[in-house]
């Protein structure tokens, strides 16, 4: 049966939208193909973090060879999963900054690429950057310390997904600030999520935090992911409540930051900031 005219129009519109998103992704892949330092930089910090924390956990375990201890697992798991969130946020924000640095943003914004397609393209780039950046660290953790991240079970994929989405929400906030304050706000792309580390309960349970700080931590999807990770590693059970809370909070944060982004994008069009955002 042939699709009706309306359906055909929608299909054509969706195909064109996917092609525009691919155009943006292709632009960044072509950049990485021609710039090996950028590719190296993607892997550098996750590997460095993993090595440092691997030795710290070996030291804390008291016995140099006892690197498969539960403590090592909790710390190394925390490092690797948190790196996924950090790289997700940076992958999104830095891909946007690449357009500013190359003074290309004006061309992008006068093309038919919709803001939601721009966001989708940046999310795809963020996933690619996470996979390329974190996979070598995961492999090295297994080779050097015998820590297999997937020992937690398939639920680890769900943990990764929840942290990726949280990274996107924070990145939308950072990108909004760049739209509002220009490239002068670019340092936030590297620092904002690091600043949330103490409240994200990456290396310790939320209950360790002072009582007044615990609601702050529990408002972050990451705190629920790491509680879930500890439950998987220590009690060998899946904390469904924490998983559900993580995704509900992800949805709320993503919707809120998406709204902020659209407001700032429209504001930038009113102020003329899209003309000189590089300054």
């Amino acid at each position: 049966m042939r699709p009706r005219a309306g359906q055909a129009g929608m299909l054509d519109g969706s195909r064109a939208a996917l092609r525009r998103i691919w155009g943006l992704v292709y632009r960044h892949l072509a950049l990485y193909r021609r710039s090996w330092p950028r590719v190296l930089e993607l892997m550098y910090w996750p590997i460095l973090q993993m090595i440092v924390w691997g030795f710290v956990t070996a030291y804390l375990a008291g016995v140099q060879n006892d690197v498969t201890s539960v403590a090592a697992g909790v710390l190394l798991g925390g490092v690797l999963l948190w790196e996924a969130a950090l790289r997700s946020q940076m992958g999104f924000s830095i891909s946007f900054l690449e357009e500013i640095w190359s003074r290309n943003l004006g061309h992008v914004f006068v093309s038919p690429l919709r803001p939601r397609e721009l966001v989708a393209g940046l999310m795809v780039m963020s996933v690619i950057r996470v996979v390329v950046g974190v996979t070598p660290a995961v492999l090295l953790a297994w080779l050097l310390y015998g820590f297999g991240l997937f020992a937690m079970g398939p639920v680890v994929v769900v943990f990764f997904a929840a942290l990726l989405i949280m990274g996107w929400a924070v990145a939308l906030g950072v990108t909004s600030l760049i739209l509002r304050y220009g490239a002068g706000a670019e340092a936030l792309a590297w620092s904002v999520l690091f600043g949330l580390t103490p409240f994200a309960a990456v290396f310790y349970p939320v209950s360790i935090l002072p009582a007044w700080l615990q609601p702050v931590a529990l408002a972050l999807p990451a705190a629920h992911v790491f509680e879930g990770m500890r439950a998987a590693l220590l009690q060998h059970e899946i904390a469904w409540g924490h998983l559900l809370a993580a995704f509900v909070l992800d949805a709320l944060w993503l919707a809120a930051m998406g709204w902020v982004f659209m407001r700032q994008f429209q504001g930038a069009r009113v102020r003329g900031a899209l003309l000189n955002i590089g300054e």
Binding site: A16, R19, R20, W22, G23, L24, Y26, R27, A30, H107, V108, S111, P112, L113
Partner: peptide, 11 residues
């Protein structure tokens, strides 16, 4: 590559 990017963006 530049022209290809814009060929995609303009479908």
């Amino acid at each position: 590559e530049n022209l290809r990017v814009y060929a995609h963006l303009y479908d």
